[in-house]
Design a protein around this nucleic acid. Structure first.
Lengths: 222, 222
DNA sequence: ACCTGAACACCGTTCAAGT
DNA sequence: ACCTGAACACCGTTCAAGT
């Protein structure tokens, strides 16, 4: 997102801290201790300054988070070799975005605050939209199809991250486990049938196979 | 989620406030002023009590939010007539969940804290999983397919809610608009091609048509 | 059993002043 | 131009005491 922060040509007092310092320290806190521990006060302390000094370099905490996401994406989104087959290219590009975000559990907080994603992801979006068009979709349908892929990907990450957080925080059996244990088979026959396998089944990572299904469905001529 | 809060048989001091009072007041604050304004202190004030009195009826704020989601779902998730055709039944049931959540913008905060959803949604899940099995998927594949539908649905809501919030908060052009305006057509030919139509295209509500594509893809025998 | 008051350990951000 | 200190207006939650 990084609105170019016009580097000042030393017209006044020399800056003691920079945007880069802030991002670097913020990255350290977030990766080492989690996004919850990132506060303006804590960051200022670690950087050896005061909370209000930060506000000369970032507009507010939300901008800081977006800056950190941008920094993370730039650092980790390296363009891979993509297959020549357009359908396969879509799957690989979407999976690349997915894997980067999935490896970054604090992303979820920012995802809902961010304008989708940084410029680093643009190349991947280009590949996906391009692949969809090569497969015969017109530009409008390609954009809509890309969005469906993005919704599926973002949803997978949000839900999985939430589930992981709950497992970490909670020792006692989840509410869902209780519900499934006492399921009335006459009212919910299908769910009762899979009740005892629900937890392991939903823990399986099926992102890619379902992504393929989604892409296949999007490319069907209906 | 509502762990049954064993109603006490007046063994000690009579309760001045109840779980129901708390939920009712919480619902009012959330619907009238948004989830951000719901604090334990504010809720206590509105209910005419003290913050700590609340902690005798709910474990913490997270439980309160889950209780409120549960309350909302129970109130609004009415079972509709579903079509006999299983494929169509899946689409209608998923759309019903989607529409209820989409009408409830504060849901997103809770979605990431909640064990998926309340018992009120279980009937819809049963219909979806049942429909998938009727269409020929074995139980395992049906559960996985249901999850893909849920990811897509949750993602759509999270991303759209975030986008709406940004539009509301921000007057200036979004970062994405700036990026698309200055897109290099030689590096991003496909995106450049749709750049000027990106905003209206992504604003279109295509949840149901893309859901159909997803369901079609999930039901393909591959 | 249920509620209260005071306190703990924090937040993000504004404002006015300093260098 | 950049930074500081103090203050504003809050948080969720714990603890010890009251009824």
């Amino acid at each position: 997102m990084s609105q170019p922060s016009a580097p000042r040509k030393t017209p006044g007092r020399p800056a003691r801290i920079s945007r880069e310092d802030i991002i670097e320290t913020g990255r350290r806190i977030v990766t080492e201790e989690g996004v919850d521990r990132l506060t303006m006060r804590r960051l200022a302390k670690d950087i050896g300054s005061t909370p209000m000094a930060l506000y000369h370099h970032v507009r507010d905490k939300e901008e800081l988070l977006v800056l950190l996401l941008d920094d993370y994406a730039t650092r980790t989104m390296h363009r891979p070799e993509l297959p020549a087959d357009p359908r396969e290219r879509i799957v690989v590009a979407a999976s690349a975005i997915h894997d980067v975000l999935a490896a970054c559990p604090w992303i979820v907080e920012v995802l809902t605050a961010d304008d989708l994603m940084s410029t680093s992801a643009l190349w991947f979006v280009e590949q996906i939209v391009g692949g969809l068009m090569e497969c015969g979709l017109n530009p409008e349908r390609a954009v809509h199809a890309y969005r469906a892929i993005w919704y599926y990907t973002a949803g997978e990450i949000v839900v999985r991250t939430a589930a992981a957080r709950r497992r970490a925080a909670d020792e006692r059996p989840t509410y869902r486990e209780q519900v499934f244990a006492g399921l009335d088979p006459s009212e919910y026959p299908r769910l009762a049938q899979v009740a005892d396998r629900w937890a392991p089944l939903t823990a399986e990572d099926t992102y890619v196979v379902q992504l393929r299904a989604l892409v296949d469905g999007l490319l069907l001529t209906r």
